[in-house]
Nucleic acid binder design. Sequence first.
DNA 1: CACCTTAACGCGAAGATCTGGCTTCAACGG
DNA 2: CCGTTGAAGCCAGATCTTCGCGTTAAGGTG
Lengths: 189, 189
Amino acid sequence: MSPKPMARPGGRSARVQASVHAAVRELEAERGRAALTVPLIAARAGVTPSTVYRRWGDLQELLSDVAVERLRPEADPDDHGDLRADLTAWAEHFLEEMSSTPGRAYLRDALLGTPESGNASRCSDYAADQVDLILGRAAERGEEPLPGREAVMDHVVAPLLYRILFRTEGLSPEYARGLADAVLKDAGR
Amino acid sequence: MSPKPMARPGGRSARVQASVHAAVRELEAERGRAALTVPLIAARAGVTPSTVYRRWGDLQELLSDVAVERLRPEADPDDHGDLRADLTAWAEHFLEEMSSTPGRAYLRDALLGTPESGNASRCSDYAADQVDLILGRAAERGEEPLPGREAVMDHVVAPLLYRILFRTEGLSPEYARGLADAVLKDAGR
DNA sequence: CACCTTAACGCGAAGATCTGGCTTCAACGG
DNA sequence: CCGTTGAAGCCAGATCTTCGCGTTAAGGTG
């Protein structure tokens, strides 16, 4: 299924995976997403198409894998020394990333994989980890009361994702900020 | 693109669309979703594959269309004579429908279509209409204060959809009920 | 009602993709 | 160093997808 739990993490398998993933990214940049096909990707990666079919099953699953990697945050959220500043800035940043044209495409691709691959949940875990980091820093500072991780996921992340995926209009940094403020207010701040 | 804005709504076009949609539903029930292919569907519908490719572009887009139809609510939400009862019952019902194995599949299929087809937003509109109905009834009864439609979408519908799509664990009727209660409390009830 | 316009369908051939069986390779363990 | 075994290569057949061209029928017009 998903290449994550590889029986043989080292050596050839890893090289093939890296090479195929790289081929996807290159070809997507060069010719656009619509032009991607398994044989094309395999040729660029220097493997045979049947290798790709065997490991990923189909193009969707492969794109889903690649998309999740692209959705992984590259850095920890900025530390502004204050929970409200941290959370609002992160929410705005998250919205900006995810609602961009490529961001939307990656999100959709990630969801496109079979549920069993766990790509969608990995995606959500990335966001949860970032939220935990922000809340953890606030706790260290002694800020209180703090909203729970799940409260932030439900009242900030979920509305943002919902609107990015199901709607197109009315997404602004102010909206993201408002969600962050509201969850803090709910927590009693 | 999407068959909705048909230049010629009546006659043959409509028959073809109905016949193809029916073929999808039949074959999905008979052989399962994984076995669906464009030529197979076309044969069952009594049309040529090229007709399907021309009208829908590819299998994904067709499945997305069919999925949206299946996600359309069949009836108005029950009237329990009270906003809290209406909203909690509707949230539980929505969760039950959408988190079932077929419900999840239809949701994912609906998202699978190109954003331009508007299938995803139509899907969200269905929920919004139901919420409007519930809130409208509460307004007629003179209940006050009422949460806004968008508040319900953000704090009830969005968390449910987020968890259905991105996670697998921890979805219970109690959770849905809690979301409904929370949005009412937020509105001051 | 006959005629015109044109979107949509049917057909078939060419090209591309997908599947499956079998062979070969190389990572890991003894 | 050698055996085991999961993964990759190769190739052929089946299936799917695209595309050009002719035909059909819906909707409009006089």
